[in-house]
Amino acid sequence: MSQQGIFTRVFLLEILKGLSLTFRKLFAKPVTVQYPEQKKPLAPGFRGRHALVRDPETGKDRCIGCYRCAQVCPAQCIFIETERDPETRKRIVKRYEIDALRCIFCGYCEEVCPVNAIVLTEFYEYSGYSRQDLYFNKEKLLQNWDEFIVTQKRPYFNPFWRPRGIPVEKLPAPKRKAEGV
C-alpha cells in the first residue's frame, strides 16, 4: 500500500471531509420552517379546498347549472341538481355538492367553468372527524369562499380561471373578459 493510502486509511480522511461539510452547514441559514407557527407562502393558483364564488353584487353563488364541471370531473365527485323556475323559466341550481374525499384536485372544474363560479382556493389546512364533514354542500362551499377571501387581496383572480398563454378563442366567451372578485 502506498504511503498516501496508509495515511488516508489511518486518519479516515474521507470521513473527515464529509464531517467538515456537515459542520459547515451548522452555520448556514436553516431551510426548515417551524410549521404551525410559521407558514410557507403558497403560490397563486395552488389547488386546495373547493369553494363557490360569492358574487359581490348579488351575494349569491354564480353557478348557472351547466353541468360542465360535473361532466369533466375525472373522479366524478361533483353532484348537481337543477330545476326550472316555473315563472321565469330560468334554471335554478337546487343542489351543488362536492365530495372532497373523492376529489383529486386536478383543477379541471375551475378551468371549464364558463362563469368562474367554482374555484380551488389556496387553502389547505382542513380536516374533519367524519366523512360528512368533508362532503361540501352549497352553503358550506360559500362559507369556504368567505373564509378564504378575507385572507386575500381584492380583486382576487385565480390563474386557472383564464390560464396564461391559452389562445383566447379556446375559452368560452364569458371567461375572455372575466374580472377579479
Binding site: A43, G45, F46, R47, I104, F105, C106, G107, E111, L120, P159, F160, P163, R164, G165, I166
Partner: peptide, 20 residues
Amino acid sequence: CGARLTVSYPRIGGVRMDVT
C-alpha cells in the same frame, strides 16, 4: 401549475398554463 406532486401540467395539445 398549482400542485407539488401530481402536477398534471401538460394537456393534450400543449400545456395547461404558461410560465411567469
